[in-house]
Computed example of a mutant assay.
Amino acid sequence: MRLGSKSTDEFFGVLAQKSQQISQIYQKNIDGLVKPTPIKVMLGDTTITDQNTFDPEAVDKFYNSILAKSPKWKSQGITTTSDEDLRRIFVKMECQIKNYTMLWHMALQYRALLYYKPDIRVQNIQKELAEIMDNTINKEKELAELTDSMIKERLAAMGYKDLDEQTLFEVLFENDHLRDEISSETAKKTDYDFKAKDQRKKELFKELDNLLLEAYTTTSVLIDENRLVTGEEGCVCTFDLDFVKNKKKEAIFDPKRIAPDTKQEIIQALDDIIRSLQN
């Protein structure tokens, strides 16, 4: 059962108040961790502008501190996910109290935006890349015209004249030696090293990638897990209480059947969390 759900039961009402108090304290902590910090970034057109960000590692440290303060709670540790620009950092914890299991889920969902570092090298790389691409296109066009001319001359000498494109293709396709000869001759007639330029492009793109930086945006608004799944930015703090019967969890059970000492242990577990979050 999700704590905080509507219920007329007094015990569930107490748990709802406790879970709400924890959520409020948790939200306050997250709010301090994700406060926007202004940084300078460069856009794709090399314009330098201001952008806000926060440090996801600070949230990771916060979750780790909670894990350290909660020895009675089992967890698989902190998990991070990345789906293109959508990121999530979360932790799921579990506490066994008699025949009941309490589940605690905390998460922060945020987005990562890509920019360039404000470095003059970005502009220089883009300029060099543009020159390489323009020169390559021009040289490829020149080479294509030269190749067409050589093909026509060679085929004319072989007795082929006034061929349409389809016939020309068929002749070249069936004559490997002729294709290789023409390719070798045209390569000798240009001083443009296509292979070297292609390698240089790869090096420049790799250098550009190294000049990228990520800025992160989110909000400390509490959202439920449905909104988390749909990709909304925000934080999650939920509790579920399940009854364990024959090693199976049951979300629906009668709270009146919970023993008084078990109820007290459940309340105590939530009180411990409140104290650990406030310290």
Rank of each mutant, 00 (worst) to 15 (best):
T262F: 03
E94M: 11
K249V: 08
M42K: 11
Q268I: 10
E214D: 09
E225G: 06
E265W: 13
K35N: 04
C95E: 09
M150D: 04
E145I: 08
I48M: 15
A157K: 10
E250V: 11
T238L: 08
L67E: 01
D209P: 14
F12C: 06
F194C: 04
R111I: 06
I267K: 09
T47N: 15
D209H: 08
D242T: 08
K74S: 13
G32N: 10
N226S: 03
I97Y: 12
Q24G: 11
E140D: 08
L270I: 12
E185M: 04
M1F: 11
D209Y: 13
F253C: 10
Q24K: 03
S276N: 08
G44E: 14
Q126I: 14
D191W: 02
R111K: 15
L222P: 00
L277I: 09
Q109W: 07
E94R: 06
K18V: 12
E174P: 00
Q264C: 06
L204T: 10
E181Q: 07
S149D: 10
Q123F: 12
N124C: 07
A107G: 14
Q20C: 04
Q96N: 14
K195A: 03
L213I: 13
F90V: 05
L146M: 08
D271P: 13
K98D: 09
Q278Y: 09
I125F: 09
T46E: 07
I223V: 09
D164A: 01
Y192E: 00
Q278V: 13
G231A: 11
K28F: 15
T230D: 05
S183M: 06
F243V: 07
L172F: 02
